[in-house]
Write a protein that binds this DNA or RNA. Sequence first.
DNA 1: CTCCAGGTGAGTC
DNA 2: GACTCACATGGA
Length: 295
Amino acid sequence: MPGRLLVCMKTAPPPLEAPIALATTLESGQVFHWMREEDGSWRGLIGDHAAHLSEDSLRLRIHRGDPHLVARHFALDHPLDRIGQSFPRDPMSVEALERCRGMRILRQPHWECLATFITSSMKQVAHIRAMSLAIRKRFGTRVEHSPVEAYPPFEVVARLREDDLLACGLGYRAANLLETARILERGEFDLDHLATLPTWRLRRELVRLPGVGVKVANCVLLFAYERLDAVPIDVWIHRILTAMRRGRPGTPAQLARYARRRLGPWAGYVQQYLFHRARTLPRKPRVIDIKETPN
DNA sequence: CTCCAGGTGAGTC
DNA sequence: GACTCACATGGA
């Protein structure tokens, strides 16, 4: 059975006609290294494989890159229609679904995703991107036809000095990324091997790594291990869940239980749509306290 | 200037 | 379990 299934999966044509909102997907805070061209197309890397893509009314166009790899990375096989139908019916979720229609949860390389989210704590999306690009520029490997370098593998990061990462703006995160890379390099932890574990056991393993708590672990589960029911709860989602609970505050564990119950079988998808909706909502103009300036 | 950001880990009760 | 605090950095 496994052999036959493998053959089927290998020969099945990639579902390239499936709808996708490319810009929304690439700007939603899952991945941080894609570059938008003047003409609106996108250049970036899938691992160390260069890709040049564009989208027109939710139809993907591949200007460069292996279609099978692109289809897998951008998860064109996820049943977006069914996922959308599973969304909760409250106004926020409905609006998020409308606003982000076509957004997909990527299948990212394990290490690359883990590393970028270790650097994500207490940082804005723009900063995470800046750190990722700095690390790629200084320690990554050049790839032809790509405007960005491939993320350095953990073997390379493990041999850096903390100063090298501090120079990339990581601050206190530098020590965590370095130590995690060294644990992987020593072979004490195998990210690919763990992929067969059930979600709760995989999460329990990931949080053993320095700089990885429940939130980062859930990001990696969702964005790299295709656990589409994992719900990372950051400050934004925390606020949103609290609002859904009519302002009733809750501990992290309570909010996680609530999210699991309320957001449905594709809770990770709902979470990502809610996150992106909240972040792209027009910002309320800050109330400025006008004072007489003494002179 | 202050405030905030896709949190984590250690200490304390 | 829950609560508090320090931890670097940079943009608004």
